[in-house]
């Protein structure tokens, strides 16, 4: 832990002002003709000393707070274990649409309507809960990739990013190729310590040109990344990719993408988002790959203590106000 330092140390020069309550002011006492009539009172003296002490503390805390004490930004060493999973999530406007479902059969409850984004977030939250020791990164994409969270074992960070994706509406355009490249580049320069996976979450396919296909293929291979495609069916008419083979007709975008992925050298699996069993299977599969302990550094932002100082000063003020309220302002 680094020592406490001050953002504006010059203000500490004001600290002697904390001695001000030691000065006596005429206003603080009532004139009296003959003090010999008043008994000596140790309780009164003690209360006055307390008042002085608390008033000095108040001023001291305020000046300290203004000088903004804190522990500077630092890096702490962490040891992680488990797979590195980069979540690449589609945040285009189509994800805000609700999932169309089959009409309920006779005697069956209608399934609740749910937007695709909600369904995905639910699934991914479940995933995060299941594997807290894995390291996750989160990248959103529509027209351009948005790096939300870098690799970290701080699940809360990723969860917060995930929750934030619920806000607003996405763009119409979807550029999956750039998103994929961003996710792949996220692994660049990291030592290989555990199985690596990209969790691509999307509701549709994309046509990728040959150049991009080559780059994706090379990237996945170079960084030894397995690709997991979590496919969200927009309606009962969407193709069930789990059942589609590698030689299917590629006129549909989803199917074309699936076929491209399936023909890559890298590990590839496709899952339906509304199927928890298949998700669980995916996790187990990721887990079975090798797990090495990983030492990495996490940046800890500057911790500011000025707020604590001000709270302390405020509580001192409340005490002083209480003491002052009991003070007699006039005789008789």
């Amino acid at each position: 832990m680094p020592p406490v330092d001050f953002a504006i140390p010059q203000l500490l020069a004001l600290l002697p002002m904390a001695l001000l309550p030691l000065l006596r002011r005429r206003r603080d006492s009532l004139p009296f003709p003959w003090i010999g009539w008043l008994p000596r009172d140790p309780v009164g003296r003690l209360l006055h000393l307390t008042w002085q002490l608390i008033a000095m503390l108040t001023l001291g805390f305020i000046i300290l707070g203004l000088a903004m004490p804190g522990r500077s930004e630092t890096r702490i060493e962490r040891i992680g274990r488990g797979a590195e999973i980069s979540i690449l999530m589609d945040r285009s406007s189509s994800m805000d649409a609700t999932i169309r479902r089959n009409a309920p059969k006779l005697g069956e409850q209608a399934q609740p309507s749910q937007s695709k984004n909600d369904a995905v977030r639910k699934t991914l939250s479940w995933l995060l809960d299941q594997r807290p020791q894995n390291r996750f990164a989160l990248t959103l994409f529509n027209t351009a990739p948005i790096r939300v969270a870098p690799f970290s074992d701080d699940v809360a960070l990723v969860q917060a990013g995930l929750n934030a994706s619920d806000i607003g509406r996405g763009s119409n355009e979807t550029n999956m190729g750039l998103g994929l490249m961003a996710a792949i580049d996220g692994f660049n320069g990291r030592s290989y310590t555990g199985s690596r996976a990209i969790l691509l979450v999307s509701d549709g396919g994309a046509r990728l040109d040959d150049d991009l296909r080559l780059r994706i293929q090379r990237g996945l291979k170079r960084n030894r990344i397995s690709l997991y495609f979590i496919y969200i069916q927009s309606s009962p008419n969407s193709p069930n990719l789990e059942l589609v083979g590698t030689d299917a007709d590629a006129s549909l975008e989803e199917v074309a993408l699936h076929v491209f992925f399936a023909n890559l050298d890298s590990e590839y699996r496709v899952f339906q988002a509304d199927d928890p069993e298949s998700m669980a299977a995916a996790i187990v599969e990721i887990d079975q790959l090798q797990n090495l302990p990983l030492t990495y550094y996490e940046r800890v932002p500057r911790v500011d203590y000025s707020r604590a100082c001000f709270i302390a000063a405020l509580s001192c003020c409340i005490f002083l106000a209480g003491l002052t309220a009991t003070r007699l302002e006039r005789l008789a």
Binding site: P33, I35, W37, G44
Partner: peptide, 24 residues
């Protein structure tokens, strides 16, 4: 000066002549 205030509380008085302060 001959009759103390009816209500209790913190009383801080200064002698008009010697300036000594007594707190009760």
């Amino acid at each position: 000066e001959i009759e103390p205030p009816a209500e209790g509380g913190l009383l801080s008085v200064r002698d008009a002549e010697s300036g000594r302060i007594r707190r009760l």
